[in-house]
Design a protein around this nucleic acid. Structure first.
Length: 647
RNA sequence: GCCACCCUAGCUCAGUUGGCAGAGCAACUGAUUCGUAAUCAGUAGGUCGCCGGUUCGACUCCGGCGGGUGGCUCCA
């Protein structure tokens, strides 16, 4: 056998015979350890892969990203094997790795029950104990199709059938089970074990709702028990932070079947809501926006012109009055274009930036509604910019500056930017789209944003940039978006007079920074676990009287705090101090001021800041000054800056 | 919209094979006047999501509808 040489990290060059397995080479190099696969020239391969030529070879540890991918994929196969043993009539389809775990889709005559999941999990553990060897074989495509048809696996045969004819496919077998798979996999089922099946759900075959509904079983898998437990603990933590639980508990909002998907904001939640709007308004003042108030309901004629009637009608609330069809607006843009078209506009008027906090209503399919994150009624910090083509770059840059300022204000750091391009169903000229997509990408590059491309995800009227924020629970949410409109200026025929007296078509941008205020509140509640920043907290200070003797002084303290613009309440209930402290903590009140005989006699309070604990009593004026400073809205007070360089 | 599961007091949850609906917390009343995460006692609170069926009898079994949860498909 010819000698080959392999570069193994930490071991330099290791000599091997061509045809030796990766496992043999790694073992001899003393780096096999508990690896579940190998990396050969940068590609993940099975440990049983034969090395035929010079190259680089490294072990893949179970806890490494590639290792976890292998474990999860192998665990998906393990589950499929268990399902086939328990339910031979079930047909296997696909079973990919997803974030933190895997799923496998089965076609079966009935849905799996939670009890089935437990049985499947036990069967999986049995197969782990059997420690079956996992073996890879290669077969011609048509032979593989025949093999799976022979086993009655018509879905699998269909998948393999869609691979180009004449190609070979790789199969992985373990005991009585075989599956089509690119691999790699762990060498034997005994290497698995730190997994848990989490839930079952329906899923359409090939993701198309016209197809059969399959049974999808989700699971999570990790390198060892400890990391599995840690992951389950994180899920538990997420459950505790869930805004649908915290929101009502903190008396912020509630949902009721009387209006599915449209939230009721309670007085406390309304304070948060209005503070966010006030914050955005303060930015608008500096960034040169003008606010408008526009109709909620329009004759559908408007939506026919804008294109919404054709592209978006199924998602709209339509109504009939006076023999006329009306639509509740799902977006502000058609109204704003209409508004722009009123009166003659000159280049001297541009850019025009219409901001609108109007409520929007979208008839979302019932199955997609969820808390405040997916609703049927909401409002956005929405605005539409109309400018000359020459101004478009600067307008885009301005938006990016504003976005950055807002994210800094909230301390949002983990933000990924995606450029979403022309979808299949679109309006306007493809050339316009290409231009717009290029403009967006160049602007991002100039502003120093990294981004990824998300082909086909744009809005029907133009390409879009989405700012996706990852919250404390590692979930991703679209907050800000900006879209170049390639359709509506033409459809509405809006114009402006250029310096040379000719008429031009203005460029239209759609943009939002917080996005939906409802969704933003949900994200903020979960990100902060309900500990909202002081400027947003519905009740900023709670004054606690120790006994009835200090209640009157407590009232005076509350009056002083309120006069200084703070949101303060008095708890003078006939309860012990410990009880009131607990109540304030559970409502996550940021600051507590205890007043007893001592404080009352000296014009003092004993502060207790949430997360910081008790402080010695201090003069009321001192406490008040600190609270006012801490409660400042971002971009105001000391740090306030003047107008941003526009207009 | 599709698949599965869930819906009992304001909240969190018990409720045996179909036989008079329960607890803790919250609320209310009284006592207590108390110093940093729950003082004690008492009172009230329910068309068991809604409608229909089976049954001598339904929170419990069956069907339909509504809402929610997890997914799928769609999306701020």
């Amino acid at each position: 056998m010819p000698e080959i040489s392999l570069e193994v990290p930490g071991r330099g060059i290791v000599a091997a015979a061509a045809g030796e397995t990766a496992r043999e080479v790694l073992e001899r190099a003393g780096v096999l350890g508990d690896s579940v696969a190998a990396r050969l020239n940068g590609r993940s391969v099975d440990l049983s892969t034969r090395v035929e030529a010079d190259g680089r070879l490294a072990p893949v540890a179970p806890a490494s990203p590639e290792g976890l991918e292998v474990l999860r994929h192998s665990t998906a196969h393990l589950m499929a094997q268990a399902v086939k043993r328990l339910f031979p009539a079930a047909q296997i389809t696909i079973g990919p790795v997803i974030e933190d775990g895997f799923y496998y889709d089965f076609s079966f005559e009935r849905p799996f029950t939670p009890e089935d999941l437990e049985r499947i999990e036990r069967e999986m553990q049995k197969i782990v104990a059997e420690d079956l060897a996992v073996a890879r074989t290669v077969e011609a495509r048509d032979a593989a199709v025949g093999r799976f048809l022979g086993m009655g696996e018509k879905y699998k045969a269909e998948i393999i059938g869609s691979i180009p004819a004449g190609e070979d496919v790789s199969l992985y077998g373990q005991g009585d089970f075989v599956d089509l798979c690119r691999g790699p996999h762990v060498p034997s089922t005994g290497r698995l074990g730190a997994f848990k099946l989490t839930h079952v759900a329906g899923a359409y075959w090939r993701g198309d709702e016209r197809n059969e509904m399959l049974q999808r079983v989700y699971g999570t898998a990790w390198a060892d028990r400890e990391t599995l437990e840690a992951h389950l603990a994180l899920l538990e933590e997420a459950r505790k932070r869930d805004h649908r639980r915290l929101g009502p508990a903190l008396d912020l909002f509630s949902l009721h079947s009387i209006s599915p998907g449209i939230p009721f904001f309670h007085p406390r939640g309304t304070i948060v809501y209005n503070q966010l709007v006030a914050y955005v308004r303060s930015l608008y003042e500096r960034y040169g926006y003008t606010e408008v108030v526009t109709p909620l309901i329009y004759k559908t004629e408007l939506f026919k012109t804008s294109g919404h009637y054709d592209s978006y009608r199924d998602d709209m609330f339509l109504l009939r009055a006076d023999e006329e069809e009306y639509g509740v607006k799902p977006m502000n843009c058609p109204g704003h274009v209409h508004l722009f078209a009123q009166g003659k506009k000159s280049y001297r008027d541009l850019p025009i930036r219409y901001a609108d906090f109007s409520r929007l209503h979208r008839f979302e399919r019932s199955g997609v509604l969820s808390g405040l994150t997916r609703v049927r009624g909401f409002s956005q910090d929405d605005a539409h910019v109309f400018c000359t083509p020459e101004q478009a770059d600067e307008e885009f840059a301005l938006f990016l500056r504003m976005t950055r300022e807002v994210y800094d204000a909230f301390g949002f750091e983990d933000v990924a930017v995606a450029v979403e391009t022309r979808p299949e169903k679109f309006l306007g000229e493809p050339a316009l789209w290409d231009d717009a997509e290029r403009t967006l990408q160049e602007g991002l590059r100039r502003a120093g944003f990294d981004y990824t491309l998300s082909p086909g995800d744009g809005a029907f009227y133009g390409p879009k940039i989405a700012f996706n924020f990852r919250d404390a629970l590692k979930r991703s949410w679209t907050l800000s978006t900006i879209q170049v409109d390639c359709a509506m200026p033409d459809r509405f025929g809006i114009r402006y007079v250029r310096p040379d007296g000719a008429e031009g078509r203005p460029v239209m941008l759609h943009r939002a920074i917080l996005g939906s205020i409802e969704r933003f509140i949900a994200i903020l509640v979960e990100h902060t676990a309900g500990d909202l920043p002081l400027w947003l907290a519905p009740e900023q200070v709670r004054v606690l009287s120790v006994t009835d003797r200090s209640a009157e002084y407590g009232e005076a303290v509350v009056r002083r705090l309120r006069a200084a613009g703070l949101r303060a309440e008095l708890d003078s209930r006939n309860e012990k101090l410990g009880f009131k402290i607990r109540a304030a903590e559970m409502m996550k009140i940021p600051a507590v001021a205890v007043v007893g005989d001592k404080e009352a006699s000296q014009d003092m309070v004993a502060p207790r800041w949430r997360g910081e604990g008790n402080r010695p009593a201090q003069a009321l004026g001192e406490f008040l000054a600190e609270a006012v400073t801490r409660a400042a809205m971002p971009g105001t007070g000391e740090a306030a800056s003047g107008p941003v360089g526009v207009d």
